[in-house]
Structure formats: structure tokens, C-alpha cells
């Protein structure tokens, strides 16, 4: 037991989790914005936008996240010399956020689209009938109801995103939790199982409230029909 507790003096486990929380927070915000725009493209009346939305979703949803994040580090950063900050660590951290956001935007788009499917067609017809064109109708009538119908699937995307933030290690964000876990296992092979369990428990603690919150919110905010 003392052995186990000494781990926390040597290694800053909460700080590593904090990196994952930050990665997830920013990636979630960008993914939500990009995913909403993509969903708008997919439900828009303009064929070229529909095609773009569909192509984006199918490409990013079907590419392994590891490849996207490794490309961010090896392709964008190392080969193309694209840097998002003067500091190396910060730049890699930001590139990882971009990769996570681009990947999860595809899933956000599909979650919102499933929300759009919960809105009866008559709502869009009524909006058009009073003279709203596509964008105002989407913004005022369709999306507000779609988001409320999409809270549960959006929650699932967020949960996946938090866990997937560990893949940022593939983008050389060495400070995040799975990176730290690897280091700890390397130096404390006597405690492999407890170390695994520690990180597993950390993610469970991080994720469970989100599941509870989205279940509560999707009931609370459901649109009465």
C-alpha cells in the first residue's frame, strides 16, 4: 500500500488528467461548432454543400483517430512545419486539439442530424410558410429543437471524446494521462495492475457525471409535443 501511495509523490497523476480535461474541453467546443456547421450543410437545400458534408463525415468517421493525430504530429508539424505556437509543447497540444475536433465533428454532425430527425417535418413547413428562408428557419426553429433531441447522442460523443483524448499521446502530447501511465509502468513494473486500475478509475470518475447529466438534461429539455 505504501508502495502504491508513493507513486503519487513521484508522478503527478492529477496534472496528467488535467491535460486530458483541457484537450477534451477545447476539442469538444470546436467539434460542436464544426459539427453544427456540417449538419447544416447536410440538411441544406444546396447539393454541393450536402455533398461536402457527407464526404467530410464519411472520411473522418472512417479514419482511425490514431492516424489523424499521428498525421498532425508527423505530417503537419514535422514535415509541413505547421506550428500553432512558438512553444513546442503548446504547439503539439493545439495540433492534438485540432485533430480531436476534426475527428469528433463528424460524430457531432451525425448526432445533430439524428436530433433533426426528431423534429417533425411540419415544423419546417410552418417556418417556411411564414416566410423564413433556410438559415433563419434552421437557426430559430429546427436546430433548437434538434439539439434538445440530440442531447443523449451528443453526450455519447463527449464521453468518447474524453476517452479518445488519450490518443493524443500518438500526437506526442506526452503530458497526458496515457503517456504518464506508460512512463509509470516502465519504471514501476511491480505495480502494473494498480497503475492500470488507477487510470481506469480516473476516467470512470470523469465520465460518469457526464452520462448522468446528459440523461437528466435530455429528459428535462425534451420538447413536449
Amino acid at each position: 500500500m505504501e508502495n502504491y501511495l508513493s507513486l503519487f509523490q513521484t508522478y503527478d497523476v492529477p496534472a496528467a488528467f488535467w491535460v486530458n480535461i483541457q484537450l477534451s474541453f477545447w476539442a469538444a467546443i470546436f467539434a460542436l461548432v464544426i459539427g453544427t456547421v456540417l449538419a447544416l450543410f447536410r440538411i441544406s437545400p444546396i447539393p454541393s454543400l450536402q455533398l461536402f458534408g457527407a464526404a467530410y463525415v464519411n472520411i473522418f468517421r472512417n479514419t482511425p483517430l490514431t492516424i489523424i493525430l499521428a498525421f498532425g504530429f508527423l505530417g503537419l508539424f514535422s514535415v509541413m512545419q505547421i506550428s500553432l505556437a512558438s512553444d513546442l509543447t503548446v504547439s503539439l497540444f493545439r495540433i492534438a486539439i485540432v485533430g480531436l475536433a476534426l475527428y469528433h465533428a463528424a460524430f457531432v454532425c451525425e448526432a445533430i442530424r439524428s436530433g433533426v430527425n426528431t423534429v417533425p417535418l411540419g415544423q419546417a413547413e410552418a417556418a417556411r410558410a411564414i416566410g423564413l428562408s433556410f438559415l433563419p428557419a434552421a437557426r430559430l426553429i429546427i436546430l433548437p429543437q434538434a439539439f434538445r433531441g440530440a442531447i443523449a447522442p451528443l453526450g455519447n460523443v463527449l464521453i468518447a471524446l474524453i476517452k479518445n483524448s488519450t490518443v493524443a499521446a500518438a500526437g506526442s502530447v506526452a503530458t497526458e494521462s496515457s503517456g504518464l501511465m506508460k512512463t509509470m509502468i516502465e519504471f514501476r513494473s511491480d505495480l502494473v495492475v494498480p497503475i492500470f486500475l488507477t487510470f481506469a478509475l480516473g476516467f470512470v470518475i470523469l465520465v460518469i457525471p457526464i452520462g448522468l447529466l446528459t440523461t437528466w438534461a435530455s429528459r428535462r429539455l425534451a420538447v413536449a409535443r
Binding site: P120, G122, Q123, E125, A126, A127, A129, I141, P144, Q145, R148, V223, A224, R225
Partner: peptide, 10 residues
């Protein structure tokens, strides 16, 4: 005016 009213539910 529609058969199913179609008031904005939210």
C-alpha cells in the same frame, strides 16, 4: 394553416 397545426413546439 395545417391539418396538424404545426405550432413551433419549443
Amino acid at each position: 394553416v395545417f391539418q396538424s397545426f404545426n405550432l413551433f413546439a419549443h
